[in-house]
Protein backbone atom coordinates (compact mmCIF):
# COMPACT_ATOMS: atom_id res chain seq x y z
CA UNK A 1 0.00 0.00 0.00
CA UNK A 2 2.76 2.38 0.93
CA UNK A 3 4.16 2.72 -2.54
CA UNK A 4 0.68 3.53 -3.77
CA UNK A 5 0.04 6.14 -1.12
CA UNK A 6 -0.43 9.50 -2.72
CA UNK A 7 -0.18 12.90 -1.27
CA UNK A 8 -3.67 14.34 -1.28
CA UNK A 9 -2.21 17.54 -2.73
CA UNK A 10 -1.55 15.72 -5.96
CA UNK A 11 -4.96 14.14 -6.34
CA UNK A 12 -6.60 17.08 -8.15
CA UNK A 13 -3.65 17.25 -10.53
CA UNK A 14 -3.94 13.55 -11.34
CA UNK A 15 -7.67 13.92 -11.84
CA UNK A 16 -6.99 16.76 -14.25
CA UNK A 17 -4.59 14.62 -16.29
CA UNK A 18 -7.01 11.72 -16.29
CA UNK A 19 -9.82 13.98 -17.43
CA UNK A 20 -7.75 15.36 -20.27
CA UNK A 21 -6.82 11.92 -21.49
CA UNK A 22 -10.42 10.76 -21.23
CA UNK A 23 -11.70 13.71 -23.19
CA UNK A 24 -9.03 13.24 -25.79
CA UNK A 25 -9.85 9.56 -26.08
CA UNK A 26 -13.55 10.38 -26.30
CA UNK A 27 -12.94 12.83 -29.13
CA UNK A 28 -10.64 10.44 -30.95
CA UNK A 29 -13.11 7.59 -30.98
CA UNK A 30 -16.07 9.74 -31.88
CA UNK A 31 -14.72 11.97 -34.62
CA UNK A 32 -12.55 11.05 -37.56
CA UNK A 33 -9.54 13.25 -37.89
CA UNK A 34 -9.55 14.15 -34.19
CA UNK A 35 -6.60 11.93 -33.41
CA UNK A 36 -4.02 13.85 -35.37
CA UNK A 37 -0.88 15.54 -34.17
CA UNK A 38 -2.01 18.80 -35.69
CA UNK A 39 -5.34 18.83 -33.86
CA UNK A 40 -3.39 18.27 -30.66
CA UNK A 41 -0.88 21.00 -31.48
CA UNK A 42 -3.68 23.35 -32.42
CA UNK A 43 -4.75 23.21 -28.80
CA UNK A 44 -1.48 24.98 -28.02
CA UNK A 45 -1.60 27.32 -31.02
CA UNK A 46 -5.14 28.51 -30.29
CA UNK A 47 -4.59 28.83 -26.55
CA UNK A 48 -1.01 30.06 -26.31
CA UNK A 49 -2.14 33.38 -24.85
CA UNK A 50 -4.45 31.65 -22.36
CA UNK A 51 -1.58 29.43 -21.19
CA UNK A 52 0.54 32.51 -20.51
CA UNK A 53 -2.26 34.26 -18.61
CA UNK A 54 -3.03 31.10 -16.64
CA UNK A 55 0.60 30.81 -15.56
CA UNK A 56 0.49 34.31 -14.09
CA UNK A 57 -2.90 33.63 -12.56
CA UNK A 58 -1.58 30.44 -10.95
CA UNK A 59 0.90 32.44 -8.89
CA UNK A 60 -1.79 34.90 -7.89
CA UNK A 61 -4.22 32.18 -6.82
CA UNK A 62 -1.47 30.19 -5.07
CA UNK A 63 -0.82 33.23 -2.93
CA UNK A 64 -4.49 33.37 -1.98
CA UNK A 65 -5.29 36.33 -4.23
CA UNK A 66 -7.10 36.83 -7.50
CA UNK A 67 -6.47 38.98 -10.57
CA UNK A 68 -9.56 40.07 -12.47
CA UNK A 69 -7.69 42.56 -14.62
CA UNK A 70 -5.93 40.15 -16.99
CA UNK A 71 -8.54 40.12 -19.76
CA UNK A 72 -8.61 43.91 -19.88
CA UNK A 73 -4.83 44.11 -19.81
CA UNK A 74 -4.79 41.91 -22.90
CA UNK A 75 -7.18 44.29 -24.63
CA UNK A 76 -5.15 47.29 -23.54
CA UNK A 77 -1.94 45.69 -24.76
CA UNK A 78 -3.47 44.96 -28.13
CA UNK A 79 -4.64 48.56 -28.39
CA UNK A 80 -1.30 50.01 -27.32
CA UNK A 81 0.53 47.75 -29.74
CA UNK A 82 -1.83 48.47 -32.62
CA UNK A 83 -1.90 52.23 -32.13
CA UNK A 84 1.85 52.55 -31.67
CA UNK A 85 2.63 50.38 -34.67
CA UNK A 86 -0.06 51.70 -37.01
CA UNK A 87 -0.68 55.28 -35.88
CA UNK A 88 2.68 56.25 -34.42
CA UNK A 89 4.58 54.05 -36.89
CA UNK A 90 7.02 52.90 -34.23
CA UNK A 91 9.24 49.90 -34.69
CA UNK A 92 7.97 46.69 -33.08
CA UNK A 93 11.25 46.53 -31.17
CA UNK A 94 10.21 49.65 -29.29
CA UNK A 95 6.53 48.77 -29.12
CA UNK A 96 6.97 45.35 -27.51
CA UNK A 97 8.94 46.54 -24.46
CA UNK A 98 6.44 49.38 -24.02
CA UNK A 99 3.56 46.92 -24.07
CA UNK A 100 5.21 44.64 -21.53
CA UNK A 101 5.94 47.64 -19.37
CA UNK A 102 2.29 48.74 -19.44
CA UNK A 103 1.06 45.39 -18.10
CA UNK A 104 3.80 45.18 -15.49
CA UNK A 105 3.08 48.72 -14.30
CA UNK A 106 -0.62 47.97 -13.91
CA UNK A 107 0.37 44.88 -11.94
CA UNK A 108 2.78 46.93 -9.85
CA UNK A 109 0.10 49.48 -9.08
CA UNK A 110 -2.37 46.78 -8.07
CA UNK A 111 0.19 44.97 -5.95
CA UNK A 112 1.15 48.18 -4.15
CA UNK A 113 -2.48 49.03 -3.38
CA UNK A 114 -3.09 45.52 -2.11
CA UNK A 115 -0.02 45.44 0.04
CA UNK A 116 0.43 48.96 1.36
CA UNK A 117 -3.21 49.77 2.03
CA UNK A 118 -4.35 46.25 2.77
CA UNK A 119 -7.11 46.39 0.17
CA UNK A 120 -8.69 43.19 -1.09
CA UNK A 121 -7.19 41.80 -4.30
CA UNK A 122 -10.67 41.17 -5.61
CA UNK A 123 -11.73 44.80 -5.44
CA UNK A 124 -8.39 46.28 -6.52
CA UNK A 125 -8.10 44.11 -9.60
CA UNK A 126 -11.74 44.81 -10.34
CA UNK A 127 -10.80 48.47 -10.51
CA UNK A 128 -7.79 47.49 -12.60
CA UNK A 129 -10.11 45.66 -14.95
CA UNK A 130 -12.30 48.74 -15.43
CA UNK A 131 -9.27 50.96 -15.77
CA UNK A 132 -7.46 48.89 -18.38
CA UNK A 133 -10.55 48.41 -20.49
CA UNK A 134 -11.48 52.07 -20.17
CA UNK A 135 -7.98 53.13 -21.20
CA UNK A 136 -8.10 50.93 -24.28
CA UNK A 137 -11.36 52.61 -25.30
CA UNK A 138 -9.72 55.98 -24.74
CA UNK A 139 -7.08 55.04 -27.29
CA UNK A 140 -9.81 54.16 -29.75
CA UNK A 141 -13.31 52.82 -29.73
CA UNK A 142 -12.79 51.19 -33.11
CA UNK A 143 -10.76 48.16 -34.07
CA UNK A 144 -7.28 48.99 -35.32
CA UNK A 145 -6.10 46.42 -37.84
CA UNK A 146 -2.37 45.76 -37.82
CA UNK A 147 -0.47 45.65 -41.03
CA UNK A 148 3.17 45.29 -40.22
CA UNK A 149 5.82 42.89 -41.54
CA UNK A 150 7.04 41.86 -38.10
CA UNK A 151 3.54 41.16 -36.80
CA UNK A 152 2.69 39.30 -39.99
CA UNK A 153 5.82 37.24 -39.54
CA UNK A 154 4.95 36.39 -35.92
CA UNK A 155 1.42 35.54 -36.95
CA UNK A 156 2.11 33.36 -39.93
CA UNK A 157 5.45 31.62 -39.46
CA UNK A 158 5.18 27.97 -38.75
CA UNK A 159 7.77 25.93 -36.96
CA UNK A 160 7.58 22.44 -38.44
CA UNK A 161 7.35 19.55 -36.01
CA UNK A 162 7.40 16.37 -38.06
CA UNK A 163 4.44 16.57 -40.40
CA UNK A 164 2.78 19.18 -38.26
CA UNK A 165 3.72 22.62 -37.04
CA UNK A 166 3.48 25.03 -34.16
CA UNK A 167 3.57 28.82 -34.07
CA UNK A 168 6.11 31.13 -32.51
CA UNK A 169 3.53 31.99 -29.86
CA UNK A 170 3.53 28.37 -28.71
CA UNK A 171 7.29 28.56 -28.21
CA UNK A 172 6.87 31.74 -26.19
CA UNK A 173 4.15 30.11 -24.08
CA UNK A 174 6.25 27.00 -23.43
CA UNK A 175 9.25 29.09 -22.41
CA UNK A 176 7.01 30.94 -19.93
CA UNK A 177 5.73 27.64 -18.55
CA UNK A 178 9.23 26.20 -18.06
CA UNK A 179 10.40 29.38 -16.36
CA UNK A 180 7.34 29.39 -14.12
CA UNK A 181 7.80 25.76 -13.11
CA UNK A 182 11.37 26.53 -12.15
CA UNK A 183 10.41 29.65 -10.22
CA UNK A 184 7.61 27.82 -8.46
CA UNK A 185 9.71 24.95 -7.23
CA UNK A 186 13.31 26.10 -7.11
CA UNK A 187 13.30 29.77 -6.22
CA UNK A 188 12.85 31.50 -2.89
CA UNK A 189 10.24 33.75 -4.41
CA UNK A 190 8.20 30.77 -5.59
CA UNK A 191 8.24 29.10 -2.20
CA UNK A 192 7.30 32.38 -0.54
CA UNK A 193 4.23 32.45 -2.75
CA UNK A 194 3.15 29.05 -1.41
CA UNK A 195 3.85 30.14 2.18
CA UNK A 196 1.86 33.31 1.67
CA UNK A 197 -1.09 31.34 0.36
CA UNK A 198 -0.86 28.88 3.24
CA UNK A 199 -0.86 31.37 6.08
CA UNK A 200 -0.03 35.00 5.56
CA UNK A 201 0.31 35.84 9.23
CA UNK A 202 2.76 33.01 9.73
CA UNK A 203 4.69 34.14 6.70
CA UNK A 204 5.08 37.58 8.28
CA UNK A 205 6.18 36.15 11.60
CA UNK A 206 8.61 33.79 9.87
CA UNK A 207 10.25 36.91 8.52
CA UNK A 208 9.42 36.26 4.87
CA UNK A 209 9.34 39.31 2.60
CA UNK A 210 5.57 39.20 2.35
CA UNK A 211 5.13 42.69 0.92
CA UNK A 212 7.72 42.28 -1.82
CA UNK A 213 6.38 38.86 -2.72
CA UNK A 214 2.81 40.10 -2.92
CA UNK A 215 3.69 43.03 -5.13
CA UNK A 216 5.92 40.83 -7.30
CA UNK A 217 3.08 38.34 -7.80
CA UNK A 218 0.85 40.99 -9.30
CA UNK A 219 3.70 42.38 -11.39
CA UNK A 220 4.25 38.88 -12.77
CA UNK A 221 0.56 38.46 -13.46
CA UNK A 222 0.45 41.84 -15.19
CA UNK A 223 3.55 40.99 -17.18
CA UNK A 224 2.10 37.63 -18.22
CA UNK A 225 -1.16 39.33 -19.19
CA UNK A 226 0.61 41.86 -21.41
CA UNK A 227 2.80 39.15 -22.93
CA UNK A 228 -0.37 37.19 -23.57
CA UNK A 229 -1.79 40.40 -25.03
CA UNK A 230 1.07 40.51 -27.53
CA UNK A 231 0.59 36.86 -28.42
CA UNK A 232 -3.12 37.53 -28.76
CA UNK A 233 -2.34 40.47 -31.04
CA UNK A 234 -0.17 38.22 -33.22
CA UNK A 235 -3.11 35.83 -33.34
CA UNK A 236 -5.78 38.44 -34.17
CA UNK A 237 -3.58 41.01 -35.96
CA UNK A 238 -5.68 43.80 -34.54
CA UNK A 239 -6.18 45.93 -31.48
CA UNK A 240 -9.66 46.24 -30.02
CA UNK A 241 -11.07 47.31 -26.67
CA UNK A 242 -13.43 44.35 -26.60
CA UNK A 243 -10.68 41.78 -27.11
CA UNK A 244 -10.47 39.00 -24.54
CA UNK A 245 -13.72 40.02 -22.87
CA UNK A 246 -14.27 37.73 -19.88
CA UNK A 247 -10.95 36.01 -20.40
CA UNK A 248 -10.15 36.35 -16.69
CA UNK A 249 -12.88 33.81 -16.03
CA UNK A 250 -11.36 31.33 -18.46
CA UNK A 251 -7.99 31.80 -16.82
CA UNK A 252 -9.40 31.28 -13.33
CA UNK A 253 -11.35 28.25 -14.55
CA UNK A 254 -8.21 26.77 -16.12
CA UNK A 255 -6.26 27.23 -12.89
CA UNK A 256 -9.00 25.64 -10.78
CA UNK A 257 -9.53 22.77 -13.18
CA UNK A 258 -5.76 22.43 -13.15
CA UNK A 259 -5.96 21.51 -9.49
CA UNK A 260 -4.89 24.68 -7.72
CA UNK A 261 -6.80 25.36 -4.53
CA UNK A 262 -8.66 28.65 -4.85
CA UNK A 263 -7.90 29.31 -1.20
CA UNK A 264 -4.23 29.30 -2.08
CA UNK A 265 -1.22 27.38 -0.87
CA UNK A 266 -1.50 24.26 -3.02
CA UNK A 267 -1.30 23.65 -6.73
CA UNK A 268 1.07 23.49 -9.68
CA UNK A 269 1.79 25.57 -12.77
CA UNK A 270 1.79 22.41 -14.88
CA UNK A 271 -1.75 21.70 -13.74
CA UNK A 272 -2.93 25.05 -15.05
CA UNK A 273 -1.47 24.22 -18.47
CA UNK A 274 -3.50 21.03 -18.55
CA UNK A 275 -6.46 23.07 -17.36
CA UNK A 276 -6.10 25.33 -20.41
CA UNK A 277 -5.81 22.28 -22.68
CA UNK A 278 -9.03 20.89 -21.23
CA UNK A 279 -10.83 24.15 -22.01
CA UNK A 280 -9.34 23.94 -25.49
CA UNK A 281 -10.44 20.38 -26.03
CA UNK A 282 -14.02 21.24 -25.06
CA UNK A 283 -14.05 23.83 -27.82
CA UNK A 284 -12.46 21.39 -30.26
CA UNK A 285 -15.08 18.77 -29.50
CA UNK A 286 -17.85 21.31 -30.02
CA UNK A 287 -16.32 22.33 -33.36
CA UNK A 288 -16.01 18.68 -34.44
CA UNK A 289 -19.57 17.98 -33.32
CA UNK A 290 -20.72 20.72 -35.69
CA UNK A 291 -24.30 20.93 -34.54
CA UNK A 292 -23.60 22.18 -31.01
CA UNK A 293 -23.90 25.89 -30.40
CA UNK A 294 -21.10 27.90 -28.90
CA UNK A 295 -22.87 28.46 -25.58
CA UNK A 296 -22.43 24.83 -24.74
CA UNK A 297 -18.78 25.73 -24.12
CA UNK A 298 -19.80 27.93 -21.23
CA UNK A 299 -22.13 25.34 -19.80
CA UNK A 300 -19.45 22.64 -20.10
CA UNK A 301 -16.85 24.83 -18.41
CA UNK A 302 -19.35 25.56 -15.66
CA UNK A 303 -20.03 21.87 -15.19
CA UNK A 304 -16.31 21.09 -15.01
CA UNK A 305 -15.79 23.88 -12.52
CA UNK A 306 -18.55 22.42 -10.38
CA UNK A 307 -17.01 18.97 -10.61
CA UNK A 308 -13.55 20.14 -9.61
CA UNK A 309 -14.66 22.47 -6.89
CA UNK A 310 -16.78 19.82 -5.22
CA UNK A 311 -13.92 17.37 -5.69
CA UNK A 312 -11.52 19.77 -3.95
CA UNK A 313 -13.98 20.13 -1.09
CA UNK A 314 -14.25 16.38 -0.67
CA UNK A 315 -10.48 16.05 -0.54
CA UNK A 316 -10.15 18.83 2.01
CA UNK A 317 -12.91 17.35 4.17
CA UNK A 318 -11.38 13.88 3.90
CA UNK A 319 -7.95 15.06 4.93
CA UNK A 320 -9.49 16.87 7.89
CA UNK A 321 -11.39 13.78 9.00
CA UNK A 322 -8.23 11.73 8.67
CA UNK A 323 -6.33 14.18 10.79
CA UNK A 324 -8.90 14.42 13.53
CA UNK A 325 -9.08 10.65 13.83
CA UNK A 326 -5.32 10.52 14.27
CA UNK A 327 -5.14 13.03 17.09
Amino acid sequence: MKSLKLDYRQLPLLATFALFIMMYAFGSTRYTGFLSTQVFLNLFIDNAFLIIVAVGMTFVILSGGIDLSVGSVIALTSMVAASLVMNAQLSPWIVIPICLLVGSLIGLGQGCLIHFFNLQPFIVTLAGMFLARGLSYLISVETIAINNPFFDFMASSRIPLGDSFISISVVIALVVVVLAVFVGHYSKFGRNVYALGGNEQSAVLMGLPVGKTKIMIYVISGFCASLAGLVFTFYMLSGYGLHANGLELDAIAAVVIGGTLLTGGAGYVAGSVVGVLILGIIQTIIVFEGTLSSWWTKIAIGALLLLFIVFQRVIVIRSKVKKSSVT
Binding site: L113, F116, F117, N118, L119, I123, V124, L126, A127, G128, M129, F130, L131, R133, G134, L135, Y137, L138, V141, G241
Partner: peptide, 25 residues
Protein backbone atom coordinates in the same frame (compact mmCIF):
# COMPACT_ATOMS: atom_id res chain seq x y z
CA UNK B 1 -17.51 62.64 -22.84
CA UNK B 2 -17.25 59.32 -24.72
CA UNK B 3 -19.32 56.72 -22.90
CA UNK B 4 -16.34 54.40 -22.63
CA UNK B 5 -14.65 56.80 -20.21
CA UNK B 6 -17.18 55.57 -17.71
CA UNK B 7 -14.97 52.58 -17.00
CA UNK B 8 -11.96 54.71 -16.17
CA UNK B 9 -13.98 56.96 -13.89
CA UNK B 10 -15.51 53.93 -12.15
CA UNK B 11 -12.06 52.50 -11.57
CA UNK B 12 -10.86 55.75 -10.04
CA UNK B 13 -13.96 56.03 -7.83
CA UNK B 14 -13.57 52.45 -6.59
CA UNK B 15 -9.99 53.10 -5.66
CA UNK B 16 -10.71 56.38 -3.93
CA UNK B 17 -13.57 54.92 -1.90
CA UNK B 18 -11.58 51.84 -0.94
CA UNK B 19 -8.59 53.94 0.02
CA UNK B 20 -10.73 56.24 2.15
CA UNK B 21 -12.09 53.19 3.97
CA UNK B 22 -8.68 51.62 4.46
CA UNK B 23 -7.31 52.26 7.96
CA UNK B 24 -3.78 51.79 6.61
CA UNK B 25 -4.31 54.54 4.08
Amino acid sequence: VPAETNLVVKAVVVLIVCLLQSPEF
